[in-house]
Design a protein around this nucleic acid. Structure first.
Length: 414
RNA sequence: GCGGGCGUAGCUCAGCUGGUAGAGCGCCAGGUUGUGGUCUUGGAUGUCGCGGGUUCGAGCCCCGUCGCUCGCCCCA
């Protein structure tokens, strides 16, 4: 084994895998456009405070997972750990809070310094959408419906479940958090060590603990529903109604919480049981306070992000590419003619390749290896007659075809 | 950051109670100097992850280290 390895948590995407990623991204891009989301490309790194201010000073992403460094000019910068903060920064930077709503789609690499495992990498890829400037519950539902459409188009919808919850507005959340802290403090002795730490840092996280003892306590813990203000409750009802209107099936899960502090109201996750511990395939929610928190005007927003690696693992094989044509010169004298034929096929829009060396046998082997549909053989006989011998590599049958009609003949017979 | 499993040929792996390394696939060449895929004959594979130790002798035992992997935390 070579010592020349990629850095931990990074990997090479060779063609088979790159094609899968590409198919995920292209599918998402096309469907997003259908919903009116245009692609945004924001920088892969930002000033550190873009993330530290918005993600919450205590979140794990900020405290231990960011790839941060000081550049040569002495600026503190960070490789983006997620996409929402950059898009929101760009909305403010470009003065787009004057022309809302903004509907953005993005795709690209993200970076988190974590221990790699199945479906989790230090450099990974996300697709996501942000719908900024719409405070209505229909906006949440439309963003979710788009996500559902994408999962369906990738053929993974049958393996995923949409779970939704509400985190309420600020008032609801404060009241609920206080009730949770009171409840878990009363049962602190029974909590796992991890959850005792969470009690101080992020009590809502106890709700999705995997510890069995915790789960027993969680089952009897107070639910957010009892603490929702009438407005927050009405909003949640509106989202559920709109989801039904869009025809998206969902289940309510009152234990969905968010790791990032800026979420409010709607929280949702598409999960699967097919990826081990990394069951979340697409997740998002509403973040009405984020843009104001960054220094912009009070602006509502809702969005989601999905892991491309996880989707690529779940989906079926992507559509096959068009099989190429292999041009095979017979003898050195034929090479110049073969090159002209090769150029002609490419100009006609066909995928065509010619091996750089080798006798007919080697070139035929090469044709087979690249998965060619036809081999176009050109020897002195054919050239003299202005023809090519076209061999169908699937059936083994051959035909003599005039050079001027070659591209058309192939298009008719493939 | 914490715990389990695993590092042998390009790939997937075998290798007994320690005796100097193998298979399949792939690759290369021939059977076929104008025909691939099938078939057949032959060939090349390797710091046994790395460093140290024990031993007459280590792929195998011991210690350390690096990497991969699964899980915890957290998250897409």
């Amino acid at each position: 084994m070579s010592t020349l390895q990629p850095a931990r948590g990074t990997r090479d995407l060779l063609p088979d895998e790159a094609r899968r990623h590409h198919h995920v991204i292209e599918t998402a891009r096309a469907l997003s456009a259908r919903y009116g989301f245009a692609e945004w490309v924001t920088p892969i790194f930002e000033f550190t405070e873009v993330f530290s201010r918005t993600l919450g000073e205590t979140s794990d992403v900020v405290t231990k997972e960011m790839y941060s460094f000081t550049d040569r000019g002495g600026e503190q910068v960070t490789l983006r750990p997620e996409g929402t903060a950059g898009i929101c920064r760009a909305v403010i930077s470009n003065g787009l809070t004057q022309s809302l709503p903004v509907k953005a789609f993005y795709a690209g690499p993200m970076f988190r310094y974590e221990r790699p495992q199945k479906g989790r990498y230090r450099q990974f890829h996300q697709i996501g959408v942000e719908l900024i400037g719409a405070a209505e519950p229909v906006a949440d539902a439309e963003a979710i419906a788009l996500g559902w459409d994408i999962l369906a188009a990738l053929g993974v919808a049958a393996d995923t479940v949409l779970e939704i919850n509400t985190l309420g507005d600020g008032e609801s959340r404060t009241a609920y958090r206080a009730a949770l802290v009171a409840y878990f403090t009363a049962h602190e002795a029974a909590l796992s060590e991890d959850s005792r730490a969470r009690l101080a840092r992020n009590p809502m996280r106890i709700l999705d603990s995997k510890d069995e003892g915790d789960r027993a306590l969680v089952a009897k813990a107070p639910l957010i529903g009892g603490f929702l203000t009438p407005a927050a409750s009405a909003f949640y009802d509106g989202v559920k109604r709109a989801l039904a209107g869009f025809g998206v099936p969902f289940v309510e899960n009152p234990r969905i919480v968010r790791g990032l502090d800026y979420y409010c109201h709607t929280a949702f996750e598409f999960t699967t049981t097919r990826l081990g511990a990394q069951g979340t395939v697409m997740a998002g929610g509403r973040y009405d306070g984020l843009i104001a928190g960054m220094g912009g005007p009070e602006t509502p927003g809702v969005g989601w992000a999905a892991g491309v690696e996880r989707l690529a693992m779940l989906m079926a094989d992507p559509p096959r590419e068009e099989a190429p044509i292999a041009v095979v010169p017979v003898g050195e004298e034929a090479e110049a003619h073969a090159l002209a034929v090769l150029i002609g096929l490419r100009k006609a829009g066909l995928r065509a390749e010619m091996a750089y060396r080798g006798n007919v046998k080697r070139r035929m082997q090469r044709a087979d290896r690249i998965g060619a549909r036809f081999a176009v053989l050109l020897g002195s006989d054919e050239i003299a007659r202005g023809e090519a011998t076209v061999r169908d590599l699937a059936s083994g049958t051959q035909a003599a075809v005039g050079l001027t009609a070659l591209a058309g003949w192939i298009k008719d017979h493939r």
